[in-house]
Design a protein around this nucleic acid. Structure first.
Lengths: 252, 252
DNA sequence: AAAGCACCTTGACCTGGATCAAAGTCGGGT
DNA sequence: ACCCGACTTTGATCCAGGTCAAGGTGCTTT
């Protein structure tokens, strides 16, 4: 092991590429970092609506979103499509494919999007020699499990208002992490995509947004959104359990 | 690296413990295996209703179910409980905790259950020196992501019949994997727990089981279940998408 | 064998959100 | 400027599944 790389060195290498998330806090040596740097390729931007990879494609690489945004979509045998996630700069996609070496969802750009490609076998190899990288990879996989399970709770136990509020708050907190505004942002996905993601009908999203606005929780102008009352949105997002006021019985 | 261990050696070491799933097909050396063997501890059986670990506990170990069965439960801030999974012999639990070093679900025994405990930091350490083990760990994490996303599709897009049918088929195929009958088995969870897991009301489960029986799809006697028509159950499980006959519009 | 309890079933009714329908809005192309 | 197609809003109606209520069923305890 050679010297640990400084923060500024890293910034030079990855810029604000999301890969710094992958390696930063875990002490990577200069040689290891060089290897990591060399394995990453910048792809030409993906146009809105174009897939980064598709369900059924063999696992070749993991991708990091640099700019723009994407959705991941799973289609069932019967043709039903479920959006399983939206991803923004600094986030990685493709982890679903490790289990079977085949992607079981498609990832599609919601707007013009640039990504970095990380060939998986090289990443795997390097993670053998860099314990911090291995831990970080596992952490990322585990985080995805957590998020999906949080989503299961949302779909299994919460009503439409709580779902939408939770969705807006999730976007907000992720934008904050990127140094953007917590309360004012642009939705890169359509109402229909939000609806699909939350297991609701498009019309319901439309009505809910109108109601939230009317209740002073937020402002909506097309896809431009301003959250006016974060605390109350949190209350709405937490509604619907047996702990709160209005119960919603479901188990015996 | 010393000699690769034979299948029979492995059987001696892990018996039919689920850990063989973790290491078997990936060529582990005798010394490595010895290390793995030494790190695994057999816990005294967990009584029905007792937790293996609880939401909020720090990550210490991963657990492999040896006999019996467990459920994992997440409780939201508002008190709503969501069962995020059922686990049977040969399956591992605890992966959710890697991201934050804290378990974000509780795992509770559905019947008297015996498990093996695998201290996580030792597993992590060993996985550094054994590439096959590392790959297998990643595969397991990734598989959990896949399963959760499959579940998201179920909760987001399918009706009650499809959910229950898919649930029964999932149990069936998992039991087959353990060498048990695909069509005849015992439910170790209550109707209420099934309902909670599937995002339905207990009464709905009860009614659906009655209807499935009446339709000749299966036989129910308390918690004893016999699947009579696997193919038709598959059809029911796949219902509800825009590809099939009866549509269920949701996106624009 | 009676009581107690946890679990399950069945029926009657209600409601949240889906579906159907019909305009309205906006951005991009010619 | 105008048109076109994709997206969004809003209203009316419907229904799958939740909720409420009232018994069963069967196991364990005494």
């Amino acid at each position: 092991m050679t010297a640990v790389v400084s923060f500024s060195d890293l910034k030079r290498v990855c810029g604000n590429c999301s890969l710094r998330e992958l390696c930063l806090p875990y002490g990577i040596s200069a040689t290891d970092l060089k290897q990591l740097e060399q394995m990453v390729q910048r792809l030409s931007p993906i146009a809105r609506g174009k897939p980064l990879f598709q369900q059924g494609d063999p696992l070749r690489s993991i991708f990091a979103i640099r700019t723009g945004s994407v959705k991941s979509v799973t289609v069932a045998e019967d043709g039903a499509e479920q959006i399983t996630g939206f991803h923004f700069p600094g986030e990685l996609v493709g982890f679903d494919a490790i289990a079977a070496d085949v992607h079981d969802c498609s990832v599609v750009a919601l707007e013009d999007t640039s990504v970095c490609e990380i060939p998986f076998d090289r990443l795997d190899e390097l993670s053998g020699s860099v314990p911090g990288l291995r831990r970080q990879l596992m952490r990322l996989l585990s985080r995805e499990i957590q998020q999906d399970q949080q989503m299961l709770l949302l779909l299994g136990k919460k009503g439409s208002e709580a779902r939408l509020a939770a969705f807006l708050l999730s976007l907000s907190s992720r934008f904050v992490g990127r140094g953007l505004s917590a309360s004012r942002f642009h939705l890169s996905m359509s109402r229909g995509e939000i609806a699909n993601y939350l297991g609701l009908a498009m019309e319901t999203i439309s009505r809910l947004l109108a109601r939230f606005q009317q209740d002073g929780l937020m402002t909506v102008d097309g896809r431009e959104v301003t959250l006016l009352d974060l605390p109350r949105l949190h209350v709405v997002a937490d509604m619907g359990g047996e702990g709160g006021g209005l119960t919603r019985r479901r188990e015996g």
